[in-house]
Design a binder for these strands. Structure first.
Lengths: 151, 151
DNA sequence: GGCTTGCTTGGAGTGCACTCCAAGGTCATA
DNA sequence: TATGACCTTGGAGTGCACTCCAAGCAAGCC
């Protein structure tokens, strides 16, 4: 899963001074975060995080001795990646498929690469479409800006 | 509504030789298309076209003497634009708002421009996000391509 | 005239991605 | 040890953007 020990930026400071130093930013923590800390990091809701786990999009999250979730930096990396995939418009089902491949081990490298390459193509198409749209928007905007100096 | 008489490319030829010359490609037709012709043009379904009209996303489509829809080139231009907006991820409600402004006339130019400019900003953000994602994908893909020469 | 194909409507149904709820257990601080 | 914020679960609910359905009218062809 080629997880690099990514040092992320301080992220949203949120209410860092109201509570007794809730230890928000990722870098200075150890490797066990509560669900609400992960919420603060990723911008996902707790509901969504639990849901991701239910549908098999998260590789088993560790638990405290009382059964509460404790996310690792590795989990956070995974969530970052999933978030990126999500905003390409990739369906959750496909992401689950990828997660399965990761669980299955190294002999799925080929299929994983194929999946990512297909996603890559989709992204390129999407970018091209957006550029097109941008051109249309610019034409309309400049029309409204010049012609539309009403009042 | 600054509708330019856009001459579009031949689009999908479809089953142009099976039926008695169904007059598919836009350019050579006059200004009245049936719903199924519009389906062939836009790739939208008839359901969606009727739904767009119901929710106020279409500026009143003309009807035949028996009440069937007859779309004009102007309508087709509008649909092209709507389709572009749609794939920026703009919510349909916002597009309806824009359609309302168009119906209200020239004194809404300012608001229309503001709406399009905000959309434009969204598109730029989106493109930047996609570029980011592309970088991540490329890293992973090249990892799988080199490291992953299993078998 | 009969058949097929296409169009009409209001309203109900679908699929996706969350999003929320109730009921209860846990944790940190005063 | 009590208070209040936080966490747990399964299952139900939500919002968006379609998508489909049934019932019926209309047009073109044999």
């Amino acid at each position: 899963m080629q997880t690099t020990p990514t040092a992320t930026e301080p992220a949203t400071p949120a209410d860092i001074c109201s509570a007794p130093a809730r230890r928000h930013p990722r870098p200075d923590g150890q490797d066990r975060y509560t669900i609400s800390e992960v919420v603060a990091f990723t911008g996902l809701t707790a509901h969504t995080l639990r849901w991701y786990e239910r549908i098999g999009l998260m590789p088993h999250v560790d638990r405290s001795h009382t059964g509460q979730r404790r996310y690792s930096n590795r989990d956070l990396d995974w969530l970052d990646f999933v978030t990126k995939l999500r905003l390409t418009g990739m369906p959750v089902a496909d992401m689950v498929r990828y997660a399965e491949l990761v669980r299955e081990g190294e002999n799925t490298y080929d299929e994983r690469r194929a999946l990512l390459e297909s996603t890559r193509r989709d992204v390129l198409t999407r970018v091209a479409e957006l550029r097109d749209t941008l051109a249309v928007l610019d034409r309309k905007i400049s029309f409204y800006a010049t012609e539309g100096n009403t009042r």
